[in-house]
């Protein structure tokens, strides 16, 4: 499953990352890391359940009660661009 330039470009697209000089390095580094990771294939994991989380937690519920949250102005203060209390972004549709 060797990673090609095309794979790197596709994954960068999925991850919304514009790569420049690192693209070439990533091809060889990702291949090396994935080669290493491939050693898991030698393990028989048939019948082994996956562990996504170590605690025996199921759904954690709480009462649906209204509570104050962080004031809007305080959150908007971190916005790179803001217009009348809204986040401002570049054109998204033609």
């Amino acid at each position: 499953m060797a990673v090609t330039l095309e794979d790197v470009e596709k994954v960068a697209y999925l991850a919304r990352l514009k790569l420049s000089g690192e693209k070439g390095r990533f091809i060889s580094q990702l291949n090396r890391i994935l080669d290493y990771i491939a050693q898991l294939e030698e393990l028989d994991t048939g019948g082994v359940p996956p562990t996504s989380h170590v605690l025996p937690l199921k759904n954690v519920f709480r009462e649906d009660e209204a509570r104050p949250s962080v004031p809007r102005e305080e959150l908007m203060a971190n916005a790179p661009a803001e217009h009348m209390g809204y986040f401002k972004v570049p054109r998204a549709i033609e």
Binding site: V8, L14, A15, R16, L17, K18, E22, F26, L30, I33
Partner: peptide, 27 residues
């Protein structure tokens, strides 16, 4: 446009190791 803004922001805002791990995880 919005897509280019995302890509440029993340491409310039993250360092190389973070980008490498995002690439690995996305892959």
């Amino acid at each position: 446009d919005l897509y280019q803004m995302y890509c440029n922001t993340r491409g310039q805002g993250f360092g190389e190791e973070v980008k490498r791990r995002i690439m690995l995880g996305t892959y």
